[in-house]
Simulated assay, not measured.
Amino acid sequence: MPTVHARPYDFPFDPAHTAVVMIDMQRDFLEPGGFGAMLGNDVSLLRPIVPACVRLLALARAKGMAVIHTQEAHDAQLADCPPSKRARGALSCGIGDPGPLGRVLVAGEPGAGFVPELLPQPGDVVLRKPGKGAFHATSLDAILHAQGITHLLIGGVTTEVCVQSTMREANDRGYECLLVTDCAASYFPQFHAAVVEMMVAQGGIVGWAAPLAEIERAFA
């Protein structure tokens, strides 16, 4: 089995039982005019991880690992969007409202789509989620069990919100998770660094962390 040199200790995994989970690499979070920008964030801080994410997905497909893309997006009626979520930020243009990239975080709108470099490929799974964690109100657990997945390599945005939430949910369900550190990012670099430390603290209380180069080296 490949073994990744990771923190807090080595992470062995069987590619046949491993999935790459790419969290919310959507235009609404990474492009000007999207929800991330409306919240007052500098979306350019997320763009540098895109090339590494492309490499990770290419490696996963080449090695026969499952690939799952999550997409935070609500139905057109916002029936799956709690009022408390929509009210966050007291924005003049918030979830469900018309914006530069279409209705904000609504399935089927341009902003809810993935950035061009990371469009899902045939054989990938696309999982729409209404919340921050990818297991909440989705079939992700059933999908993973059906494919015999036990290990997850996780990337995406943002590290302290949807990535961390998903990793904690997965840990509670018994999955072994590795955060690919240079395939995840935050609008606040200090938050990204803090989450990495939280994941690997206390002997890996939530999981492991390593850069993409260590995963590539494990296969080499």
Rank of each mutant, 00 (worst) to 15 (best):
E117H: 10
R173F: 08
A79S: 15
E117L: 06
Q77W: 02
R86I: 04
V126G: 07
C183Y: 01
S92R: 14
T158A: 05
M198I: 09
Q164H: 14
A185K: 09
A170F: 01
V180H: 00
A76N: 05
G203L: 11
A185D: 04
P120M: 00
C162G: 00
V180S: 01
F188T: 15
P83N: 05
F191A: 15
Q202T: 10
H69Y: 12
H151S: 08
S84V: 13
Q121H: 13
E176P: 01
F191H: 14
I205V: 15
V125D: 04
V115T: 08
P122C: 12
V115P: 11
H192F: 01
G94D: 01
A193N: 13
L179N: 01
L152I: 05
L101P: 07
G133M: 08
H145N: 09
P82G: 11
C93E: 08
P83S: 04
S139C: 08
V206I: 15
A146T: 12
L178T: 06
G113I: 03
P82M: 07
R103S: 01
A76P: 06
D172H: 14
F188Q: 14
A213T: 15
V161P: 04
D124T: 09
F114Q: 11
G155D: 00
L118P: 05
S165H: 11
E72W: 12
T138S: 03
E160L: 05
V196M: 05
A146L: 13
S139N: 15
R128M: 04
S186R: 07
F188W: 14
L140G: 05
P122V: 13
K132L: 02
I68H: 03
G174H: 10
C183G: 06
N171M: 11
F135S: 04
E117C: 03
P189I: 14
F191V: 13
L178M: 12
G89Q: 10
V161A: 13
V196P: 04
E72F: 10
H192Q: 06
P83I: 09
T150F: 00
R88T: 09
A137V: 10
A194W: 06
D172C: 09
T158S: 07
G148F: 07
H151Y: 02
A146P: 07
M167H: 09
L91S: 05
P100K: 11
G148C: 00
E160G: 15
E169A: 11
V106L: 08
E197H: 14
D80W: 10
G108V: 08
C81W: 04
